[in-house]
Design a protein around this nucleic acid. Sequence first.
DNA 1: CAATTAAATCGTAATATTGCGATATATAAT
DNA 2: ATTATATATCGCAATATTACGATTTAATTG
Lengths: 109, 109
Amino acid sequence: MGLTKSEIFTDEQNQLSTLLKAIAHPARIAILQRIIISNTCICGDLVGELGLAQATISQHLKELKLAGIIQGTIEGVSVCYCINPKTWKLLEEQLGGFLASYKGETTCC
Amino acid sequence: MGLTKSEIFTDEQNQLSTLLKAIAHPARIAILQRIIISNTCICGDLVGELGLAQATISQHLKELKLAGIIQGTIEGVSVCYCINPKTWKLLEEQLGGFLASYKGETTCC
DNA sequence: CAATTAAATCGTAATATTGCGATATATAAT
DNA sequence: ATTATATATCGCAATATTACGATTTAATTG
């Protein structure tokens, strides 16, 4: 099949997995790190820095944008991308809650 | 292609994306939540609770195990799965560092 | 307006993921 | 040994992802 059965899961589970999927790729992690360091990023810069083709970078940026993790505004000929603080906060909260729900060490196996 | 170019990324980026990919699925999030709540879980229970076939659940458990996020020990006829505290801690650290590196709000676009 | 530059989109190939029925394997009970 | 139960694995079909060359779209410059 290849089609996730979203209907059988909660909205929270689906939302969190969608956000995680968006950042679960080394190129997209690298892009986000670059954005965070310079507080902005331009597609062209990434093409030079990462070893990926322009079309590939643009596609990764599109996915991050689609998930609401980044946003971009036109800046002359190029496009300026930056973190969407709202989604980032949401991710921190959802993920933080999930990860913290495990109170480690009392392993049974 | 369909093949991620891991060579061009750092070990940290690859490792984090691998862990994230493992949990970036609603079924696997649901499985982990179930394990955390009861501090253990047995494949058969999940088959009843989630609406997925036994083969599918087994496959998701395998992926979580492969990523080192859970571990299982044979318990009679069934298998007892639980969180691997080491990997969970690693995930918390890596991800925490990554998420916290963005000091929000100073949006430029 | 023509030329240039930057990014997006299209089309395509290779590979990965998701899900499940069917079957195999392994342990426990009779 | 046979049977029952639980989980793993196989094989397959449908769909998704990754990557990139080629092309298109949009904005700036001359």
